[in-house]
């Protein structure tokens, strides 16, 4: 056991990150093979077979998302920071496309939308890539906040102007600003931790994902009274707290891959998980406002939205908070 630990500790950062990916790919492969074996098993009665088919279908969807996520990380890590940035920019693009489809805009917003997709999005990621921390944290809240409503105002259409500007600004804040803080973690320079910042991105995504899955399962199993039933039938403080707790404990377990001791890792994960869980709840309120349960529920989606935003919204809220607190507290 200890030999194993020292062996891992003495590997170079590159080898450690490589080990991490080998482990994750191995686990995923095992899970996929398991799911495949379950799917070819014969069942005595039809009802059980049907139940299993449904279970396997959702498992399959989850596995596919995980494969995709890990592949994205792996490509991003293997090909360097700029490729990672581009990949996150693409996720931002599709998330924003989904967000804006379901908050319809008017023709007068066309120019602002063009700016948002083709100027603001690349500019924000370029600022992240250049490591201009002071600029990229204020670029959207300060400069874009003025520029886009200006473009809309010039289109000479006052109808529901505040509402339209707010929608666009929100979409940009969540899908571009929030998302861009995930690769921004790659640019943080912790002393004595060079070449391993990919671990920090992994840390954030892993703890938030664990927190959200736990919260989801807990809400289904515990069946507590929802706090705001008009917004979410499932959200309650107990399952939220459990999700945050499990996510934070998982964070403490992962302390070995961060520059922190377990206590610090627990605190950082706690902050990220709280923000992620609450952000997901806020996004639910937004979806209710549009009268849809999911950003692209199957069968009833008018838009063909892939439901990408459903999967990344917690991350979009967790990343800026995690990034900012880390940078502020540790002064990196």
């Amino acid at each position: 056991m200890f030999q194993m630990y020292y062996y891992l500790k003495n590997l170079s950062p590159t080898q450690q990150v490589g080990m991490l990916f080998v482990t994750i790919f191995g686990l995923l492969l095992l899970a996929s093979v398991g799911a495949f074996l379950l799917s070819v098993r014969e069942h005595a009665d039809e009802a059980r077979a049907d139940f299993w088919r449904k279970e396997l279908k959702s498992l399959d969807a989850m596995l596919r998302t995980s494969w995709l996520m890990v592949l994205v990380f792996w490509i991003g890590w293997a090909a360097g920071d700029w490729v990672a940035l581009t990949l996150f920019a693409i996720v931002s693009f599709f998330a924003l496309r989904e967000f804006l489809t379901l908050s319809p805009t008017r023709l007068g917003d066309h120019r602002s939308l063009v700016l948002a997709f083709f100027v603001v999005l690349p500019a924000q990621y370029a600022l992240v890539g250049g490591g201009h921390f002071d600029m990229f944290t204020v670029f959207i809240p300060v400069y874009v906040f003025l520029a886009l409503p200006l473009a809309s105002a010039l289109a000479n259409d006052p109808l529901r102007f505040l509402e339209r500007s707010a929608k666009l600004q929100w979409g940009i804040m969540v899908c571009i600003y929030g998302m861009s803080h995930v690769p921004a973690i790659l640019m943080l320079k912790f002393p004595g931790y060079e070449g391993r910042s990919a671990f920090m991105v992994f840390f954030l995504v892993a703890v938030v994902q664990v927190c959200m899955v736990t919260q989801h399962i807990a809400a289904q199993r515990m069946r507590r009274k929802p706090i705001a039933p008009a917004i979410s039938q499932s959200f309650n403080w107990d399952s939220w707290g459990l999700g945050v707790l499990v996510g934070s404990l998982f964070g403490a377990l992962l302390a070995g891959i961060t520059p922190w001791v377990p206590g610090t890792a627990f605190a950082a994960a706690f902050i990220a998980c709280s923000a992620g869980g609450l952000g997901h709840f806020v996004m639910k309120a937004l979806k209710r406002d549009r009268g849809i349960p999911n950003w692209g529920a199957e069968g009833q989606s008018v838009t063909g939205a892939g439901g990408l935003l459903d999967r990344v919204d917690a991350l979009c809220f967790a990343a800026p908070v995690f990034f900012h607190t880390t940078r502020w507290y540790f002064g990196v």
Partner: peptide
């Protein structure tokens, strides 16, 4: 689709259509 490329505009914007 009218949101992608309204009459008189040149640059299209991404919006999900079906």
């Amino acid at each position: 689709v009218q949101h992608v490329l309204p009459k008189g505009e040149v640059v299209p914007v991404p919006v999900l259509c079906s």
